[in-house]
Design a protein around this nucleic acid. Sequence first.
DNA 1: TCCTGAACGCGAGCACTGCTCACGTTAAGG
DNA 2: CCTTAACGTGAGCAGTGCTCGCGTTCAGGA
Lengths: 236, 236
Amino acid sequence: MTATDVPRTARERARAEVMSEILQVGRSHLARDGAAALSLRAVARDLGMVSSAVYRYVPNRDALLTMLIIHAYNTVGAAVEEAEQARAREDHIGRFLATCRAVRTWARENPHEYALIYGSPVPGYAAPEDTIAPATRVPVVLVTILIDLTSAGAAPAPEPVSAEVVASLAPMTAFTGGHVSQDLLLRGLASWGTLLGTVSLELFGHLHNVVEEDPALRSAFFDHQMRQVAAGLGLA
Amino acid sequence: MTATDVPRTARERARAEVMSEILQVGRSHLARDGAAALSLRAVARDLGMVSSAVYRYVPNRDALLTMLIIHAYNTVGAAVEEAEQARAREDHIGRFLATCRAVRTWARENPHEYALIYGSPVPGYAAPEDTIAPATRVPVVLVTILIDLTSAGAAPAPEPVSAEVVASLAPMTAFTGGHVSQDLLLRGLASWGTLLGTVSLELFGHLHNVVEEDPALRSAFFDHQMRQVAAGLGLA
DNA sequence: TCCTGAACGCGAGCACTGCTCACGTTAAGG
DNA sequence: CCTTAACGTGAGCAGTGCTCGCGTTCAGGA
């Protein structure tokens, strides 16, 4: 069971090690210079290899970017899950705010990673299959809060939603089953949009001359906005 | 007055023409391949020039991107202004929804342009001075609606806002004067974030397996979300 | 135990990019 | 008319992604 995916031979060991080194160097380059400047040759140089050697491990530059995307999704997902699980299960608003704050904090600490996953898609559009699972970690946390909120009977009375809009949510309701009202689901998606929109506005410089730059004030602003969003979800 | 900025000599004429050709070809390349693939050499080729010749007109690639950014801001700004002005001045919710729809429609028609201005910042971070005025056109429309709403006495009763959050809004209130309550301003910023967040989610593929792909359903979903946002602004 | 084939690292090379520079040409204005 | 600045050219530098043929090294079957 556990032995199957653990490297045994020296070669497999070496390969795994080189692989993780490539990823690590790639991450540091991404963090320093951003995705646009990520260069396989530069990564190879840092590793003391010739550039063509990395192609034994990584098919092309986009594949490396994809790995970094997956890593980014996983780190923000882990950060969010940890922050959210630190709150009591019945503290719905606390869990929600913790989630929002964790996303923003992670984004501010890793702006290039954030831009990579929530900014303009860098590789040729089609998100590889492997990215979708990590990408769902944060949304899953949010949806879980909505489910818990509903099963605790604390969800606001759902307002009616047109049949067409209900139909548009089909892929989503396949996940949530009937555990969350369509109305609350829509509000949840809106809050997801507001969260990412607000963080993107801040990180991408669109709050310049709009909201004071001072970090404490920026945090206060963000907190206020997220509390407002929480209120829209029926969270006290 | 008008004669000063109109080209007179043949040389100035030619220069202006080449300049606009560069921009036009740049725009078509951006629309086709995206910002990352924009190449000065390719633009030069399309123009029948040698690559170094374009440097007589454009200092570097980033400058060309900046021009495209400005152009993008202006086209989305114009589209929004036109859509919004088609509504009656007292139809606040109609103006708001028209604005939202215009942004989304423009974004769907010009995804790479949208990504350029509202996605990850491509050039070396610092947004040049020339971009800020065009960038404000859409937000100005939104704020104007809020001002009109307030002066029509139709704004919802403002809820109290902490002193710290008020302080964070200093740059913004410098623009609006006292014409809009701090609470409404914050809600307006949230709706701006939700609008961009929702459009970004859709355009950048984050609604995959979340909201049905069918264009009509996507539009219905977006409309519902924006109506919800409008309700949060006190718009019927 | 040997030996075959796969994995590996290397260096050269292709096509492309941004950008610079010295060079003739051309046109504008004193 | 003639100087000066703007223009377009082509060569060239440094960097990129990616490919390919070459020896080497190692793992596992005969």
